[in-house]
Design a protein around this nucleic acid. Structure first.
Length: 680
DNA sequence: TCTCTGCATCCATCAAGTAC
DNA sequence: GTACTTGATGGATGCAGAGA
């Protein structure tokens, strides 16, 4: 057997079953610990030896169980060992010298392939841990701000309950017939359906209708009961889920901002309730446990909590006493005593803010409920009060902390990104043999990660963003400041190390932070070929427009008449940097113009930031430029000019609008979530 | 160890009526 | 003024697994 066929001998990592799978799972925790200490190599060496002691390489299939009693023998043997090096032994390897060269090669090739699979299995399982949705009890906490607040359950009219319960049986046919007759207008689908539901409901007997009305009342009553129940500690999993789902909408904005400026992990802490697998919110938390499996209270970070509270105190002091003054760097002004956490999940005492009001989870939770019972505010004003104060507080806190830290940009740190794994691949090798065939095994290749790292030697001004030299909008000119780019396209201003200095300079001007990674990546891709001054100016106009948002996106551009290759590109997660295989460029160009007409029909609809915004337009222009022949490129420059002008205009209009509103006024709510389009 | 791809799943959107 | 309800839909995103 050829010695380089290791990869062909690899089994799928899902092939491990039975006692082998059990063995791997038993060692997964140790692997995770080893990764944290960046010492995977010794772990793998010991684990491979342990594996081969239990599951001989001569068992042909990974499903084959070892002979009866073998495992017990191995365990007894291991119990006699005391030194680490002893655990690296594999008794059957002691006979290697008696094997023929051919058999020996087969053995070590087989083992090397299997070990590679085992290594892959560990990595795979480890990489899944933080993202394992089903097993992550805490995910609802972190996701809660991104859902509807659902402040109170609405009463459903009887005919709507009827519509929900009997649509399939008693309404659907009539609706479809009527809808088809009307030409299937999408914008009338629901109105026709409602009409049919009402007609069908009216045709039911009086007794049946009364029963529906009673059911509607009962459902609403039950929903309201559950709604108010959530303000009390409860072991009911439904109540607890609802509780957890709501609280972060109020608390997370504060925690997120603090997290951004302190660099600490700040999250919400929930505990297990007695007697079931549900969880109950206890309080805000600083430490390393939020969203992780194997959550342990010992990881709580009282020092971090103190720092967090100090930052909050600094914010209060700045906003209350020194509204227009520059905030001082926060110092340790208050001492926070962190009470022990209650694992039983019972409510603890609230923490007192220095203004006498409470800043505890319970208070936040009840902000829409009993805590307002005695308030003179009407329900309507309550909501306004809640929204405006939270939004202002969030913005003020950002400004205050930015001033305190001297930071110009905000980077989102709540993402669950993982560090790049750098642990070397490990294979156990035979101890010694002069003709060791393994020495000819290919060396594992490090896979370079192509990130558009910005050069620190940029010659552009020290401003951290394009916008810094573009605002105010009156003086905005996307054509200016082109001195950092190459003059003649590809290869311009190339540095000795092969990188392009003008590109590095441009990248250094882009906004920073996790939420802008996509923009930096795509900017580098789009700018790399440096087609023309106008093209780079267009890209700069794009960045300037995007900076009106926070990098998270505000919706999609119209998809009508959109070239199908955009879908092709999105389906590849926008990761491919090569142009799509467009067979008919003239047709593609015509399609592009049809789409552009759709995009520019409505300026409000055209103003879409983020990955689903003008990035797609720019990418289609790039493909056009890369794939088009001379004749095709006649209209390209005009198209680029049009796109740039549109983006400049959109930026100008929206920038002005936002200044007019004198508020953060991004298309995001107080949680940083894109605001849904309002109903007409 | 990491990237890529196809499939599965999630989620915003739509209109109209109702309640808070 | 706004939350909430319905099912269909299209686009975005997550995930498993193959393969480099």
């Amino acid at each position: 057997m050829p010695i380089d066929d290791t990869s062909k001998m690899m089994v799928n990592r899902t092939a491990f079953t039975g006692s082998r799978l059990k063995f791997l799972h038993q060692n997964l925790e140790k692997y995770t610990a080893a990764r944290e200490c960046t010492s995977v190599l010794p772990f793998l060496q010991a684990t491979f030896a342990s594996y081969w002691r239990r599951f001989s390489w001569t068992l042909e299939e990974t499903q084959d169980e070892p002979p009866c009693g073998h495992m017990e023998v191995v365990e007894m043997l291991e119990n006699t060992w005391k030194h680490d090096e002893e655990f690296l032994q594999v008794p059957e390897d002691a006979n290697d010298d008696e094997m023929s060269d051919a058999d020996w090669v087969v053995k070590w090739t087989t083992k090397a392939a299997r070990e590679q699979t085992i290594s892959s299995w560990f990595y795979w399982e480890w990489s899944k841990l933080p993202m394992n949705v089903k097993a992550d009890l805490w995910k609802p906490i972190l996701e809660a701000p991104f859902r509807s607040t659902r402040n109170h359950p609405a009463y459903e009219a009887a005919w709507l309950v009827y519509n929900r319960l009997y649509y399939e049986d008693r309404i659907k046919d009539a609706f479809e017939e009527k809808w088809h007759a009307a030409g299937q207008p999408m914008n009338r689908r629901l109105s026709i359906r409602h009409h049919c539901a009402k007609v069908a409901f009216e045709s039911e007997s009086m007794e049946f209708r009364k029963a529906m009305e009673q059911k509607a009342r009962q459902e609403h009553k039950a929903a309201l009961r559950k709604h108010w129940q959530i303000t009390e500690p409860s072991n009911d999993p439904d109540i607890q889920y609802e509780l957890i789902r709501r609280i972060p909408t109020a608390v997370n904005p504060l925690l997120e901002v603090i997290s951004e400026y302190t660099g600490m992990t700040v999250s919400l802490l929930a505990g297990k309730a007695k007697g079931n697998d549900g969880c109950i919110f206890t309080r805000a938390h600083v430490g390393g446990t939020g969203g992780e499996k194997e959550l342990t209270w010992e990881k709580h970070d009282p020092v971090g909590w103190t720092r967090t509270v100090n930052f909050f105190a600094s914010f209060l002091k700045h906003t209350v006493d020194h509204d227009d003054a520059t905030a001082q760097t926060p110092t340790l002004e208050i001492e926070v005593v962190q009470p022990p956490l209650d694992i039983d999940g019972e409510e603890e005492e609230e923490e007192e803010k220095n203004d006498g009001t409470t800043f505890g989870a319970e208070d936040v939770d009840r902000s829409d409920g009993p805590s307002f019972k005695n308030s003179p505010l009407s329900r309507k004003n309550r909501r306004k009060y809640k929204m405006s104060t939270k939004e202002k507080a969030r913005q003020k806190l950002k400004e205050s902390l930015a001033a305190a830290n001297g930071k110009a940009c905000v980077s989102k740190v709540m993402s669950k990104g993982k560090g790049n794994a750098t642990t070397p691949r490990v294979r156990q090798r035979p101890p010694t043999r002069s003709s060791n065939p393994n020495s000819s095994f290919p060396t594992p290749q490090a896979s370079p990660i192509a990130t558009p790292a910005a050069s620190t030697s940029a010659i552009v001004p020290a401003s951290s963003s394009v916008d810094a030299c573009l605002t105010p909008e009156e003086s905005y000119d996307a054509n200016k400041d082109n001195d950092t780019m190459g003059e003649t396209g590809d290869g311009a201003n190339q540095l000795a190390d092969g990188s392009k200095k003008w590109l590095a300079d441009l990248l250094a001007t882009l906004p920073t932070g996790a939420s802008w990674d996509w923009l930096c990546r795509h900017f580098a891709d789009l700018a790399e070929k440096n087609y023309s001054h106008e093209w780079i100016a267009t890209l700069r106009a794009w960045v300037a427009m995007e900076e009106l948002g926070d990098g998270e996106g505000t919706g999609n551009l119209p998809t009508a008449n959109r070239p199908e290759w955009v879908t092709w590109w999105i389906a590849r997660r926008r990761t491919t940097t090569t142009s799509p295989p467009i067979p008919d460029i003239p047709s593609y160009i015509n399609q592009w113009h049809l789409w552009w007409e759709e995009v520019t029909k409505d300026s409000e609809r055209a103003f879409r930031l983020g990955k689903n915004g003008f990035l797609s337009v720019l990418m289609t222009l790039k493909w056009w430029r890369d794939l088009g022949k001379a004749d095709d490129l006649v209209r390209w420059h005009d198209a680029v000019t049009k796109v740039k002008a549109t983006m400049v205009e959109l930026r100008s209009v929206n920038h002005r609008e936002r200044r007019k509103r004198a508020a953060p006024a991004f298309h995001h709510d107080l949680n940083g979530v894109p605001i849904r389009k309002k109903q007409k």
